[in-house]
Amino acid sequence: GVGETMPFFNQESLQQRLQALIDGARESWAYAIFWQSSSTSDFATPSVLGWGDGYYKGEENKNKRRASSSSANFVAEQEHRKKVLRELNSLISGVQAAGAGSVGDDAVDEEVTDTEWFFLISMTQSFANGNGLPGLAMYSSSPIWVTGTEKLAGSQCERARQAQGFGLQTIVCIPSANGVVELGSTELIFESSDLMNKVKYLFNFNIDMGSV
């Protein structure tokens, strides 16, 4: 039931909610991330938002952004990204050696897009309360919606500028009781209460719609 407490620390449940959020959306979101708050009853310890789970869906029109694919920088960067993916894949394959097995070379040797890379490096990031877009959303208990290259590039938040550098045009952070839901897109997507309501429903928490 909607009124029940959501099992926030169940990653399967989180993954399903993240997928439901953007797979069923009219807008084309590239990814959804749940930044999980370090829950502590010690009020002297500041809370930190760290990686909870993420769902990467991909871009709809990624072919149109391949203009620079022949440049030396592009080639070197792709080599670096593929090397990191191979290393990560080795770690994962080692983990599941007794089970499902490796995902295979074809999943690591293809071009690693900017948004895929942004999603992957997000796993290494964390935000103190009030810092970065997710931390700011958490601190203010208000959704943050940034649309457009100029607004992202001009943001005081490093994560917004980083997102812009990797070709994202829209980034949204919506706070929850236990963390922050972030969505990103390479398309221009403007603020809608529809998405807020979906997050509110799927993640079962209260946000102040009056503050949006």
């Binding site: 990467y56 991909g58 999943a107 999603f119």
Partner: peptide
């Protein structure tokens, strides 16, 4: 250092699975 937190491991597993699906969905034409 080879010691990934479990949430990252799960997320990476899914990322690679989905990536493989996307790669195999690409049209050969």
């Amino acid at each position: 250092d080879g010691d990934l937190p479990i949430t990252r491991k799960k997320s990476l597993e899914r990322f690679f699975e989905k990536r493989k699906e996307r790669m195999t969905m690409v049209s050969p034409y």
